[in-house]
């Protein structure tokens, strides 16, 4: 047991410090991807709800395709495809040889593109729950489209979307483990390195899992707090 905690010490022989910074990397790449996904998801939901036929079909195709393809393939596409693109652009400017793109950028982009497809569905569902009468009422008192969005639509969509968005954040967090295949030193990659050098894979993958659980648990509570906060003005059925 003492030996087990020795593996995790923060001293020069322990892996504690590297694991904590790797956990930070996991959260950073998942968060960047997730926020990119929110932007993509918002645009897709808007295209689906307000756009013309071409926009609707495009948005629908995007969500269907991205939700039907394994995330690992998307990670490979962005990592190798991104590097290929950058190499070609660099070659046009006279550079020779291979130019790789940072694994962090490729990873965050892959997470963002996938989670955008899922977030679009959540936003669309949340938008559906708006009462048309409220939007008409807003228009009738002369609100501009932007004001209507800020005061009437956005607050309610956010409130209805939060539980679904929380689930998608948990997905993005777990998906970030796939980015270890590109060599980005996040939690799983760091555990692989530690497991390889100490020959203790069981302990280190167990620890990696435990840290993922802790992050998931903290974020779950954060989302519960946010849900409570955004629901302040809502009277619950039967809670008179």
């Amino acid at each position: 047991m003492a030996e087990f905690f020795g593996l995790l010490s923060f001293g020069p022989d322990g892996w504690g410090r590297s694991l904590v910074s790797a956990a930070g990397m996991t959260v950073a790449v998942a968060l960047c991807g997730f926020l990119l996904g929110t932007v993509i998801g918002g645009l897709l939901a808007w295209a689906r709800l307000a756009g013309n036929l071409a926009f609707r079909v495009g948005s629908d195709t995007y969500t269907t395709v991205l939700r039907g393809i394994p995330d690992l393939l998307v990670v490979y596409l962005f990592y190798f495809g991104g590097s290929l693109l950058v190499t070609n652009v660099a070659a046009a400017f006279g550079s020779e040889g291979f130019v790789g793109i940072p694994a962090f950028v490729a990873g965050a982009a892959a997470i963002g593109v996938v989670s955008g497809a899922y977030q679009a569905e959540v936003f669309r569902g949340a938008f559906r729950s708006l009462l048309p009468g409220e939007i008409e009422a807003g228009r009738s008192v002369g609100m501009s489209r932007f004001l209507l969005f800020r005061r009437i639509i956005a607050p309610q969509v956010v409130q209805h979307a939060l539980p679904g968005i929380g689930n998608i954040w948990q997905m993005a967090l777990k998906e970030s483990a796939l980015i270890s295949v590109t060599g980005l030193v996040e939690l799983l990659r760091q555990s692989q390195i530690a497991a390889g050098s100490t020959r203790r894979p069981f302990e280190f993958f167990l620890i990696a899992g435990a840290i993922f659980l802790v992050i998931a648990w903290i974020s779950q509570h954060l989302f519960q707090y946010l849900e409570k906060r955004t629901a302040r003005g809502v009277r619950l059925e039967g809670a008179a």
């Binding site: 777990k174 970030s176 483990a177 799983l188 555990s191 894979p201 069981f202 993958f205 899992g209 993922f212």
Partner: peptide, 18 residues
């Protein structure tokens, strides 16, 4: 609450210790 990839590695590499 944990990524599937961690579970796969835990079983494939981790159990080899035993």
């Amino acid at each position: 609450g944990t990524p599937l990839l961690v579970q796969i590695f835990l079983i494939y590499y981790g159990l080899g210790q035993f």
